[in-house]
Amino acid sequence: MTLEIVGISVLWLFLFGYVIIASVDFGAGFFNAYSAFTNKEHVLTSIIQRYLSPVWEITNVFLVFFFVGIIGFFPKTAFYYGTTLLVPASIAIVLLAVRGSYYAFATYGARISHRGYIYMYGLSGLLIPAAWSTVLTISEGGFIDLVDGAPRLDYWALFLSPLTWSIVVLAIAAVLYISAVFLTWYAWKAGDSQATELLRKYALIWSLPTIVTATGIIVELRVHNEAHFDSLLDLWWMFALSFLLFLGTVLLLWRRKSYGFAFILLVGQFFLAFSAYGVSHYPYLLYPYLTIYDGFTNEAMAISLIIAFLAGFALLLPSLYLVLRLFLFDKDYVQGKSDYHA
């Protein structure tokens, strides 16, 4: 395995981690806003307070890790993506600020429960994945030109491309699906049968759009980027496995069985699809300008980053385990029997 591959694999792994845990966070906000909107009692509010408030900062660090890491391993990405992503990334930052401040100001601090704030918080959970997912579209090529040696993003082409919109829809559907499956499990652990039923319903509703748009994108790619499409097809077996896991999750949910296992299957499903997508993208970071080989940092830096990563990861894993044990697997905490917040 070359250093380039080690580097991109580490980053891809953390990006996957971000996608899963951030989806739970984003979706919960949306469902919460939706139940406020329909004047149902706020079944989800307590889950957001019990589980998401203590961990939102950790979620955010996954994102920071990814963008700091990609500049570290592939400094040339700063040149191409840095210049062109100014607008979508800035919008995403502002939306992330809405969420961060919601946890601190509204659920922790002064308990401001202004409706507008709840809606903004909920809506940001859909807009952030939409903003970030445009990066995936851009990476497929065709939207960036070099003008006088400087990269320029063609906003119109991006806006009018069907590929953009199907990736956006997939991102949103997947966020809601991932989140609903996880929260079904969490609500069930908390012994809240009303919330469990509601979330199970959401999970089943959103499973269909997720799988339909995912398939649709593969078809779109055939038109947009044939090279990528061909390498996707070479990996058909990974997608097939992923699909089987998807069926497993839906079946378990349908039969109201083993919600925890259903969530694990879902993680497997997304991991396979995410990996297959990443592998087929290889070696490009940006079609057709930048590959992981010509964008790579020097060897000395690569090796020291990998050593730093291993050392950091060795410390990180036990601490993450501790968090999960306290906030996810601790029965008393999950059921709200113990509240020790400062």
Binding site: P54, V55, E57, I58, N60, V61, V64, F65, V68, G69, I71, G72, F73, P75, T297, M301, S304, L305, A308, F309, G312, L315, L316, S319, L320, L322, V323, L326, F327, A342
Partner: peptide, 21 residues
């Protein structure tokens, strides 16, 4: 890039233990 990268691990620890604390 090395200290920038190590900074993210410092953030991780701060965030994780702050949540627990």
């Amino acid at each position: 890039a090395l200290p920038l990268f190590m900074e993210t691990f410092a953030f991780f620890f701060e965030a994780i233990f702050l949540g627990i604390y």
